[in-house]
């Protein structure tokens, strides 16, 4: 389980990194925290010929708390976010970090790496999709663009990023004081079997809308309009509404099953986890 050979490049700045990737072509990859890429290389499931280490781009590791917004630099580690003060309304971002692997993974793994790797249960993808985040990317020749999270994730480990594009930051444009993420995995720290995230519009005990996102139910993290419709129809924040919402979510998805966890079971998990997430969200 030793990685295949590659040529190592250390990026000095964002422009240098993107230009170099553009020049080297498809055999080149960015290396951020290495917590997804290196295990794949150790199993020889990934064989980049060039690695461009962006780990020293200090300008990409920041947490910027605005009055109604939050910007997180792509090189911020999960641990940095977990221990930062993210400002009112973004507690859900901080609290979700504890679901990502274990402490020694979180001290190295990065926000940008998670979003780019796009695992179907990645917590950062779930948060970005749930909270309608903007993903800011830089490309070769100084190009920049902003990708709506809802359009970023295409399928199994695939995003809309071009090969030369580097994620620079993820920006959350509105606070989510009543949001929660919950999951189920057999062991502490595992990638979730199913994860559920909700962000409720709730005031004085009445729900008037909200967002529901799920991980582990398909090739990429998804939003569930069917469940959100239930929230928009509104009602008292309580078991009845949450169960209807959860039921709608479970009906809307068709997660792939295997011997140990079939489709029906995963749908049931969706249902129960959405209820749990709703309860945690109102309790905030």
């Amino acid at each position: 389980m030793k990685p295949p050979p590659f040529t190592y490049h250390r990026a000095r700045d964002v422009a240098g990194a993107t230009d170099l990737v553009a020049e080297l072509g498809e055999d080149a990859k960015f290396l951020a925290g290495g917590q997804s890429l290196i295990p794949m290389m150790n199993f020889r499931l990934a064989r980049p010929e060039h690695l461009i280490d962006i780990g020293r781009l200090g300008e990409l590791s920041f947490v910027d708390v605005g009055p109604e917004s939050l910007r997180v630099g792509s090189l911020s580690t999960h641990r940095a976010v977990e221990t930062a003060d993210l400002g009112a309304g973004f507690e859900v971002v901080r609290d979700t970090m504890r679901w990502i692997g274990h402490l020694p993974i979180r001290t190295k793994g990065t926000v940008g790496g998670s979003l780019a790797h796009a695992d179907a249960t990645a917590e950062w993808c779930l948060l970005a999709v749930l909270l309608d985040a903007d993903i800011v990317v830089a490309g070769a020749g100084g190009r920049r663009r902003t990708i709506a999270a809802s359009e970023a994730f295409l399928g199994f480990y695939t995003t809309v990023l071009e090969e030369d594009e580097l994620i620079v930051e993820v920006a959350f444009g509105r606070p989510a004081p009543h949001a929660a993420v919950t999951e189920f995995a057999e062991r502490k720290g595992d990638f979730a079997l199913v994860s559920a995230a909700v962000d409720l519009d709730v005031s004085s005990g009445t729900v008037s809308g909200g967002r529901v996102a799920l991980g582990g139910v398909g090739p990429a993290v998804v939003r569930v309009p069917e469940a959100e419709r239930v929230l928009h129809a509104g009602g008292r924040a309580g078991t009845d509404l949450f169960e209807t919402c959860a039921q709608a979510a479970a009906q809307a998805v068709e997660p792939p099953g295997d011997d140990d966890a079939g489709t029906g079971y995963r749908k049931a998990l969706v249902r129960n986890l959405v209820v749990r997430a709703c309860e945690e969200a109102v309790a905030r």
């Binding site: 290495g34 290196i38 295990p39 020694p104 190295k108």
Partner: peptide
């Protein structure tokens, strides 16, 4: 394990515990 799960390789990098099998 060389894939980040077992932690036998854990060292401190700038004071933080990290997997030395998942770092070049």
């Amino acid at each position: 394990c060389e894939h980040g799960v077992c932690g036998a390789c854990t060292v401190l990098v700038d004071g933080d515990p990290a997997r030395s099998c998942l770092m070049f």
